[in-house]
Design a binder for these strands. Structure first.
Lengths: 118, 118
DNA sequence: TATCTATATACCCTTTAAGGAATATTCCAA
DNA sequence: TTGGAATATTCCTTAAAGGGTATATAGATA
C-alpha cells in the first residue's frame, strides 16, 4: 500500500502536475488545450500527463487525432481515506491521553490523602 | 496554495518518509528509535526528518540529549480537504452531466415526433 | 575537562527528474 | 500516398535527491 501511495503522492508533488490536475477537475481536456491554458510546452505537458497516467491519476481517451485526459476520482478517495486515518489516529490518541491523565489525577488525589498535604 | 501543497506532497512521496510518518502515527519518537524500528541509518533518518520538518509535517521537541519528533495533524486536515474537493467536484460534474443528458433525451423525443420514425 | 550518547551536517557518488529542442508517430483528409 | 495537425518520444543538459561514511555539535556525566 505504502509503495503505491508513494508513487501517487510523487505524481502529485510537482507544481505543474498539480496545476494539470486542478485544471482537469473542471473537466476532461486534450493535451493541446492543457498546454495552452497552463502555458506549458507540448512535450512537457505530454510528459507530465504520462506520469499522472502511470500513477492512475488520469485516464486517456483517444478521440480521432487527439487524446483526451480525464481525472480519475478513485485515487482521491484513497488519498482522502489515508489522510483521514491520521486525523482519526490523533483523536484516539488524544482520548487515550485524556483518560491517562484523568487516571493519574485520581492517583495523585488518593496519594494526597495518605501522604498528608504538606 | 498549490505551491505549499506540492512541497507537502513531495515530502510524503518517499517510501521511507511515508514509513516514518506511519510510525509516528502511533506516537512521538526520538530519532534513534525511528531509525531502529525502520532499519534506517541514523543520518538518513535525520535527513528525512528534516524534510518532513520543513514541510511542517512533523515538529521537534528537544528533550535533554534527544530530539522527539511529533506528527502534526493540521497538515493532514489540509490534504483531506484538498482531496475531498476533487471527489465533490466529480460528483457535481456528474450531476450536471445527468441533467444535460436528460435534457438531450427530451429534445430527441420531441424531434422524433416531428421527423418521423423511419 | 575528558568522555559518552544522541543527533545533525558535510562530502562523495549514483540515480533520477525536469526543461528544451528536435524528431518520430498517429490519425485524418484530400 | 502525400500533407498537415495533434501528440509522444528521444536526446541533451542541469539540478536535485537519496544513500553511505565520516565528522561536527549538543547535552549529560564522571
Amino acid at each position: 500500500m505504502s509503495d503505491g501511495l508513494a508513487r501517487t503522492l510523487f505524481a502529485l508533488s510537482d507544481a505543474n502536475r498539480l496545476k494539470i490536475v486542478e485544471l482537469l477537475k473542471t473537466g476532461p481536456l486534450p493535451v493541446g488545450e492543457i498546454a495552452v491554458q497552463l502555458q506549458l510546452n507540448q512535450p512537457q505537458t505530454s510528459k507530465h500527463l504520462k506520469v499522472l497516467l502511470e500513477a492512475d491519476i488520469v485516464r486517456m481517451e483517444p478521440v480521432a487525432n487527439r487524446r483526451i485526459y480525464h481525472l480519475r476520482t478513485e485515487v482521491f478517495q484513497g488519498i482522502t481515506a489515508w489522510s483521514q486515518s491520521f486525523e482519526q489516529q490523533m483523536v484516539s490518541r488524544m482520548v487515550r491521553l485524556e483518560a491517562y491523565l484523568e487516571q493519574q489525577q485520581k492517583s495523585v488525589d488518593s496519594e494526597g490523602v495518605n501522604k498528608d498535604g504538606g
